[in-house]
């Protein structure tokens, strides 16, 4: 049996909100260590890897491994019915045909209970070995989100160029072009505002702006985003959870 209680529904609300526009069907794998998901978008360009460790829950138990096949839009409809500050408990039997979601208001005696039918989802699984990266950028997630939104107004592609101490986001469109340069910066008082660049080799990669604009839906989850890049390889965008992560692997674009 699975029983996982979040102190606040807000965490799962943000996670589902970040995923639902990229993937429609997901298997949520529940083990004694927590809940994990690997899901790929229909175009097979963007992969989501989610890990909500047991430590993200106030109470967590999962006696046997359980797979919950969930339709994200349906899950989102139910999740939206709960308040962000509600306690949220996920309950499923050992061989479940439904996931129960219980929202409890902390101030009042109000309990809302929902049942979501499970689906049998046949998904293939991509084997991602430990990747080596040439460059790692830690920067404020809100700043990264603004850059992705701004650059998408110009072009469907966004070029990321990293040299010693700066990251250049470059966009070349039909009616014009634009770029934003971010430099390493340490804010001792507000560490979440800092930009850290770790570079082994210079990077020049191009990504689809559409996918980046799906990734930035994770911005409410974490004040910083970590971007890991390697020449001619998929990039990794990571948002840390209190205990766990939401990662996106994005395949690059290449010259014709």
């Amino acid at each position: 049996m699975l029983e996982g209680k979040f102190d606040e529904a807000s965490l799962l609300k943000k996670v589902i909100d970040a995923m639902k526009d990229s993937v429609k069907l997901c298997n949520f794998n529940c083990t004694e260590n927590g809940i994990s998901v690997q899901a790929i978008d229909d175009s097979r360009v963007l992969l989501i890897s989610l890990l909500i460790e047991a430590g993200s829950f106030e109470d967590y138990r999962c006696d046997r491994n359980i797979v919950l096949g969930l339709e994200m839009e349906s899950l989102n409809k139910i999740i939206k019915n709960g308040n962000a500050s509600d306690m949220l408990t996920l309950v499923a039997e050992d061989s479940p045909d439904a996931l129960n979601l219980i929202f409890e208001d902390k101030r009042r005696d109000r309990i809302a209970e929902y049942s979501l039918k499970l689906m049998d989802i046949d998904q293939d699984f991509l084997k991602i070995e430990d990747m080596k990266f040439d460059a790692v950028v830690n920067m404020p997630s809100a700043e990264f989100a603004k850059i992705c939104r701004d650059m998408k107004t110009l072009s469907e592609s966004l070029q990321i160029i990293i040299t010693k101490d700066s990251v250049k986001f470059n966009s070349e469109g039909d009616f014009g072009s634009g770029s934003v340069v971010i430099k390493s910066f340490t804010d001792l008082e507000k560490t979440e505002e800092s930009v850290r660049i770790t570079l082994e080799k210079p990077i020049n990669l191009t990504f689809g702006a559409k996918y980046l604009n799906d990734i930035i839906k994770s911005t409410p989850l974490a004040s910083q985003v970590t971007i890991k890049l390697c020449d001619k390889q998929p990039a990794l965008f990571e948002y840390q959870l209190p205990s766990g992560y939401l990662r996106f692997y994005l395949a690059p674009k290449f010259e014709d």
Binding site: R44, L46, L47, D124, F125, S157, K253, F254, E255
Partner: peptide, 14 residues
């Protein structure tokens, strides 16, 4: 503006 690659080109399917 460039050819979009897919993740299957980089990661094997299990």
């Amino acid at each position: 503006d460039g050819l979009q690659s897919t993740l299957g080109e980089f990661f094997p399917t299990e």
